[in-house]
Design a protein around this nucleic acid. Structure first.
Lengths: 148, 148
DNA sequence: GAGTATTTGTACGTATGTATC
DNA sequence: GGATACATACGTACAAATACT
């Protein structure tokens, strides 16, 4: 039948190891990771493979990399609580590269857009906010309206 | 001195051109892009550079790439409208690689997590939902509570 | 279904540029 | 200025999934 055990690519495996270490606090927030060369030797792989592993963690918003400086674990900022106005609509998306450069947004950080009933739009960095629905009476569960 | 006009990397420039073409409908949703080799010739750059340009568009959720098949413009699915329960909290983040594989999520698609007052969590793909705050009286504007 | 061509994915190497320390 | 470290860009080869005949 040839079930074909899928072996994850080396750079995925390395990203998984590093992610685990970050989660367990082996590399505390704000602290530098080993340099790319060091990681190459540590895992006996090429620079390319290490850089792809780091790219994954960057896309997940776990680390930041800057030219000339060692890669570092991203410090997750404290989240502000934002209360949605009644009848506001919220969507979430990745910023364009232009937006990232203009607003200095790290890779792997989505945007939250809240549009109120007057059409005014507010944009937040997803990792810095927690959106609260307004208190009130009734319904404690999320309702899904499916138009499909 | 030495203002050093910052010249964007070639792969950024190419990504910008392709993004523009996608936005203008030159490459309609669901349709394949030119192959990587064709793009190499078209822009007179190496395969590496083209692949990095495509990686950007992938991170932005604009295209999908699959081994063996040509890269294609992502079709943006119709958004369901989800109504938040009162007192629910919403956060948004990138999925982990594990989640992406397990749930078959394309790169560049954030997750929306809604936690109701009982602690129950619902997860949505960010590009498939629009979250509505419950209707009611009062406040039409978004209130920000800053604890800093 | 079988076989082949196409296309992207993975992984290696090398050289040079540029920002940071 | 020098050393360090990441960024950009070229190249190559083979693997694996898909698409086509």
């Amino acid at each position: 039948m040839n079930v074909q055990r899928h072996v994850p690519a080396m750079y995925h495996q390395i990203a998984d190891v590093l992610r685990g270490e970050i989660d367990r606090g082996t590399h505390p927030a704000g602290q530098p990771l080993p340099t790319e060369r060091e990681l190459c030797e540590q895992y006996s792989v090429s620079l390319t493979t290490i850089r792809r592993a780091l790219a994954i963690l960057r896309e997940e918003g776990l680390i930041t990399t800057r030219r000339g400086a060692p890669s570092a674990v991203r410090e997750c900022p404290a989240r502000r609580t934002v209360v949605m106005g009644r009848g506001s609509k919220l969507t979430c998306r990745m910023p364009t590269t232009t937006e990232r450069f203009a607003m200095g947004i790290d890779r792997g950080v989505p945007l939250v857009e809240v549009r109120d009933r007057l059409g005014h739009v507010e944009v937040f960095l997803a990792d810095q906010v927690e959106v609260l629905s307004p208190e009130g009476l009734a319904s404690a569960t999320t309702r899904v309206m499916d138009f499909a």
